[in-house]
Computed example of a mutant assay.
Amino acid sequence: METFSIAFKVGNLELDAIVTAFDHHRRFKVEMVTNEHDPILLQRLTAGEWKVEQAGQRSISEKGFAAMQEAIDSYLEKIYAAHNILVLTDFSLAASNAAKYAAAMARSFNSINIVLYHSMSVPLATEIPLQTPPPALDFQQEALSKLEELKNEILPISGSGTTVTVRTDERPLVAAVNILAEQLQLGLVIMGITGKGNLERVFIGSNTITVAKECKVPLLVVPANAVFEKIERVVFACDLKKVSETTPTQAIRTLIHKLNAKLYILNVARDGASFNPATINELAALHRLWDEEHPEYHYTDHDDLVQGIMDFTKEHQIQLLITVPREYGFFEGIFHRSMTEKLAYHTHLPLLLFREDK
């Protein structure tokens, strides 16, 4: 559930409204006044058409509803197209690489805003343990200095159309991310996948897992050795459970269009479960959601879900993996397994996580 404001025009009258979005931005409650008794209820259909489910207590013409819907679409387009990106950093090598990846992605998008953020509740990455912690002001000054260094490092990569700003404070990381997401109208959060200090020997850090579970906007997880290249092949790995209710179709579609990439839809199942009678309706729903994008559909069996996905990404030279994980064991599994020889090849593959709508 997300709340935002819009402005639209009905005839010569300029109106403001409060919009609450539900169901992966498919249903909207529109109020002219907070807690309105009889609000407007709108539904955005899969193909982009709108349906007025409840007209509310105000007399709004068909043109008025069209202007309202256009204003909502404009807001969503700005969010989905990731005009505003938050890059999290603890100044580790992996975090710095994620910032460079974000800058290169921004260049491919032509115009974008990047905010580099460090939470002082997450200690600075350092090789030497601190015997006596310095005062908080010293931490802040050091963090700001490092953020400015990182900003200057990525500016040449990001291109002239990109603005880069820096922020640091003492808020807990997850709380800060979600507050900034609302304040800055973020479309994407980007972070690396290693922790600090000795944790850099591991491909997944606890901070990444925590943010992945709680982040309200899409999270792009960038492996430590990933190098940005123009993204031309993207796979959406999904299961066949509540497809219509839980798939953020419009968000994924907008990003695919922004990248101008080819979309693959992948379902990996065990023991032929993809063609179990219980999943036929879900298969039909999946096609209704995506057929207009003309993706390549792939259904395969594998005893190991993660291995099945990774095999597919290698075979089809996938450059970005998108998923809506229901169990974060799946997310952890990809990168823990990357420490083994079997999956080490795949640690270059960025993972874009969309939160399940509950």
Score class of each variant (00 low, 15 high):
E292N: 13
R171E: 14
L289I: 13
V87L: 04
L199S: 15
I18K: 14
F22T: 06
E315Q: 08
K258P: 01
L343Y: 06
L353T: 12
L255V: 01
I231Q: 02
E293W: 02
A125D: 15
Q319H: 01
K29E: 13
H336W: 11
K63V: 06
R326T: 07
E77V: 13
C215P: 08
N178P: 03
I265V: 12
K78Y: 14
V52Y: 06
G205T: 01
N281Y: 10
D16T: 07
A278T: 13
D23W: 07
A269T: 12
A102W: 04
P39N: 12
A106I: 02
L343A: 04
K230V: 06
L353N: 06
V30H: 03
T132Q: 09
V177R: 04
F8W: 00
T126M: 08
P277M: 07
Y264E: 10
D271H: 11
L184D: 10
D304T: 02
L352H: 02
F354S: 07
L144Q: 15
N260P: 00
P135F: 10
I209E: 12
I112A: 12
L173I: 07
E170V: 00
Q141N: 13
F203V: 01
D239N: 15
A94E: 03
E70T: 15
L321Y: 06
D38W: 08
L321D: 00
K258Q: 13
N97E: 13
S111P: 00
L116Q: 04
